[in-house]
Amino acid sequence: MYGLKKDWVMEKRPRVCVLEDYVGSEARWCPGCGDHAVLSSVQRVARDLQLPPEKTVIVSGIGCSSRFPHYMKTYGFHGLHGRALPVACGIRSRRPDLDIIVVTGDGDCCAIGTAHWIHAIRYNMNITVLLLDNNIYGLTKAQTSPTTKRTERSNTHPRGSFFVSLNPISVTLGIDNASFVAQTVDWNPPHLYETIKAAHEHKGTSFVRILQRCPHYTSHIFAEAQRDSSLMLLMRHPEGINVPDAVAKTFKNQVEHDPSNLNEGREIASQSNGVYPIGLFYKNPQAERYDDFTSYGLEMGPSAEIEAVNEALDRFMV
């Protein structure tokens, strides 16, 4: 090129990650599955925030939604049923530099992994948790999950479920030290995108329940809410989930809710009028973070470590 040497390069080329940099194997979820929408939202958030793929880890358990890491081109940990959260907390304990996103389902999180869910919220390490809740066990073919509504039929309860369903939002809001609790739906991409983005930007454990359609087993459950937005309640606030006005306009039911008001968040979460509230129930950026404690001593070098071991050993000298 005229005026430039043949081997000219810019000293530093800014690295730009494009959407393809986050796209892994072809997603094998059923056509029409709500998980596809969550995947593309996560990929777009990652791109828009320019998360380095090598510094991003998606951790999951077992279930349809837990196949998620395979479809990202980042680091991933597709582990055991119900156990994504302890693994994610372990990763976070000594790696403040990574972005960690947990993808879990209603069986994975709210049944077999319940203990870890409660305690991970309490630990409040900097992790984004996406609960993809389709009200059913999909991968193992239609068994009742903790969020399956009472009287809904499944292969384990062919005459209808006996159990009163569990509300993951009110449970999470009941755990001490919860710091970010939100709900969104897979069929509203702008709201989904903004919620995931806000969750990622929160420093602490952000818990996002995503109502997610299963076209195979529970297609009827959210169908009406998808058709008729009056079956949803949009929570709005400058400190809440920031959706464009054009999107907000489509919601007939709206409420002004300050996410620092825990009791009001709990009230909205536990209303039983068949309306799905979406938005941010609660946020507390001041909540104690366990990773502040576990990352102690990361910078210690070998000589300091050896000195510490020698000092400890000397206390046992004969």
Partner: peptide, 16 residues
């Protein structure tokens, strides 16, 4: 919180 989480946490740290 339990024995399972204890090993899971350790494995997470080791994976990282």
């Amino acid at each position: 919180e339990d024995e399972i989480a204890a090993v899971g946490f350790a494995l997470g740290a080791s994976y990282a």
